[in-house]
């Protein structure tokens, strides 16, 4: 595979960093080079939050994203801030609540991520894993095996939430398939 750069953005507490860790972890388990970084404000909740994952067969030096191949934005603020960092033919995944600027050149997936979390799972806490399912579905086949992804989720979420989260992951895949 060529280098794949994925940026996940939202607000602090939405769990985008955990989703990025799960993805990078699965990348390593798959035998790829993977690197995960994040930037966030000093507060634990509410501020802008951004996490990045780079997956590659080759050694990864510069650990940050230059041009994202995939951008997830769960909030308007995150979309406004990061949409210009998406490469021309990249993939944008946004929550349906986000208003797009209208001049997108990239492929856009507007998905009811936050609503699905609330309606189907009765908690916003799984929005990150629904998003992860969507990213997984759209990042391309054959990069990471699905069972490795499921295992990575299982290892990294609290034990009593494993079922809910793996269900959320499947839900995310379904949403992206449309």
């Amino acid at each position: 595979m060529k280098k794949l750069e994925i940026r996940l953005s939202g607000s602090g507490g939405q769990g985008v960093i955990l989703a990025a860790i799960i993805l990078a972890n699965a990348g390593v388990e798959q035998g790829l080079n993977a690197i995960q970084t994040q930037s966030y404000g000093p507060e634990a909740r509410g501020g802008a939050s951004k996490a990045e994952v780079i997956l590659s067969n080759d050694e990864i030096n510069y650990p940050k994203i230059t041009r994202a191949n995939i951008l997830l934005s769960l909030t308007q603020k995150a979309y406004d801030k990061y949409n210009s960092s998406l490469e021309t033919n990249g993939i944008l995944i946004v929550d349906e609540s986000v208003k797009l600027s209208g001049d997108e050149t990239f492929k856009v997936y507007t998905l009811p991520i936050l609503r699905t979390a609330q309606e189907k799972f009765e908690t916003q806490l799984v929005a990150n894993i629904i998003s992860l399912g969507a990213i997984y579905e759209l990042m391309g086949e054959g990069i990471i095996d699905k069972d490795i992804m499921i295992r990575s989720i299982t290892e990294r979420v609290p034990a009593h939430t494993v079922q809910k989260n793996t269900d959320a992951f499947e839900e995310g895949i379904k949403l992206a398939r449309g």
């Binding site: 990078a24 690197i35 995960q36 970084t37 650990p63």
Partner: peptide, 9 residues
């Protein structure tokens, strides 16, 4: 901070 907070293999 880059090295401290970064995750890789």
């Amino acid at each position: 901070e880059t090295v401290g907070h970064m995750r890789e293999k």
